[in-house]
Amino acid sequence: MDFSEEIRGKAKELLESGTVDCVIGYERATDGVGARPLFVYQPNDIDRLIFDQTCTHNLTKYLLNRKGKATAIVVKPCDSRAINLLINESQVQRDKVSIIGVVCPGVVKAGLDNTSGELQDTCRMCQQHTPVLYDFLVGEPASEADVPDTYPDVTGMEDKSAGERRAFWEEQFSRCIRCYACRQVCPGCYCPECFVERLDPMWVGIRIAPEENEVWNTMRAFHLAGRCIDCNECERVCPVNIPLSLLNRKLGKEVEELFNFQAGIDAETAMPFSTFEKEEKLGISE
């Protein structure tokens, strides 16, 4: 799959017409194989744009740096859900963003080239191959995949005993180096001051040590309950391979079961985290 020409055509049109002053897309990385984000401001940089199955990054986080500025952005289906989330939470103005949606068969594992066909794990469980939100669509709308089990990883974990789960996560979090790459890349993490950086009172200690790492990682996961759009960026960027998506997907599954809600499917449905119905508490205590 290679949609580079289509993306370039659309970028040229949007930049030259003055509709936007920046197009956020992808270019080839320095290894000659993978992709990296690209900001195009000038028509003569348009030819650097690419789109193929190595384009793994969720670029929507960058929209938060361009508030109020007319911007075009290339999104895959999972990324498009992040824009809905950000519109729903009043972080992105819909009329300032031109969304170039791409029909996505899934992206390949890190280090592999476009032709390898070996998809990332989350892509194999993904049901959404056409963006939920776009102004321009690249590729033929795909019929949605019939994935029989969308949470095999989570149910696999749920089958373990509480003790086993605790031991598993303790070991994973013990490796955390608190680089905060998971937060920095996450479109749902945009607090002007993250709780982990609060100094007075200090909510989480600065010590890069198991107990404090555990507080950091679990609090971040709870803040994303019903907000995570499952782009897997946190897990992809983690330099010590902590399976963060597993944690976020568990909370996503809980929210789906309790509230019949999936983040980012549209921009209007009230978010479970920011609304309260009296009858809700009935289900939660079980």
């Binding site: 984000p37 900001f39 986080k61 960058y62 680089c179 790459a181 937060r183 960027v237």
Partner: peptide, 16 residues
């Protein structure tokens, strides 16, 4: 500033 467009400002580079 152009380079920083792309940078997500995590601490990975410093810590590795």
């Amino acid at each position: 500033d152009r380079l920083a467009d792309r940078c997500i400002h995590c601490n990975i580079c410093s810590y590795v």
